[in-house]
Design a protein around this nucleic acid. Structure first.
Lengths: 148, 148
DNA sequence: GCTAGATACTTGCGCAAGCAACTACTTCTG
DNA sequence: CAGAAGTAGTTGCTTGCGCAAGTATCTAGC
């Protein structure tokens, strides 16, 4: 077994670790956001992405990319949020195929309420992961990403 | 805005990066494993986990943990693989509630065929991610995890 | 300026996931 | 040792996803 085979195994191990950490964080967030705001993680991601956007509106495609979802799933996701009055669709004037989505006031309020829950849950999930030997190095690496 | 708020934002950013990287790798693997072996990523994970296990058998609960799936999903996942003849259920003699799953020869063969595809796809997905500015630092950190 | 092909979104359909309720077995407690 | 409480796995039901096909709109080549 040479250097090459080792590299393959390191990558596979890294991927398993990444998947495990992702899974555990997502499960925690899912639980706490559902309990506090009746939001799924992707739904929160949409609200958060919109609030972070200049002008607070994004096209469906951008949303699909931001959530790593297919465009059909994005359509239905936006439907759900629109039905709950958290965002609105706005036809694009310059490109009439396009549709902008924009947070409503209710959406902003719900996001505002959910954000601290999200952030606290994330912190505690990371802390919990840090005490799992398998995950600890990745959590550490994650924390050191953008210190500069 | 003090140090504390910064830490919150760093964690949130790290989580978004983690989720994005996870999503893109998973999508790539899904596509290539489906095309080459008609396996989903979780299905591959099961076969791989079993092959890595001493004695090549695991209980449903372990499998559920290894795949980050609920136990009901695990039941059906094992059903699918059993129906395809890739693994078998074996009743636990010492604890008759428990059920071991074990790779069949066909399962081992399929895994053997799928593994190079999996490893290559993983390598190329990581390489692709490395050229995305947002993801690059995390990919780098992932590669540096277990060098020791 | 008209048609061919690309792009943006939506809809129909099948599949896999989670939750809650159920069965079967084990372990704890008095 | 009997009954209560806990654990392992399965099943019914609902929900949300992706793929492929459909509609509407834009863009390029002639």
């Amino acid at each position: 077994m040479g250097i090459k085979e080792d590299a393959v195994e390191v990558r596979a191990q890294g991927w398993r670790t990444l998947a495990a950490l992702h899974g555990s964080i997502e499960a925690e967030l899912e639980r706490s956001l559902q309990a506090s705001s009746e939001l799924s993680v992707v739904e929160y991601t949409v609200l958060d992405a919109l609030s972070r956007q200049d002008g607070w509106h994004m096209r469906m495609q951008q949303l699909a990319r931001a959530t790593a979802l297919s465009s059909s799933a994005t359509t239905r996701l936006v439907n759900r949020l629109e039905d709950r009055g958290l965002l609105t669709r706005i036809l694009c004037a310059d490109d009439r195929r396009g549709i902008y989505t924009e947070l409503t006031v209710a959406g902003q309020k719900l996001l505002e309420a959910a954000k601290p829950v999200h952030d606290e849950t994330l912190a505690s999930a990371l802390e919990a992961a840090e005490s799992v030997p398998e995950l600890e190095p990745l959590v550490r690496a994650l924390g050191a990403l953008q210190k500069a």
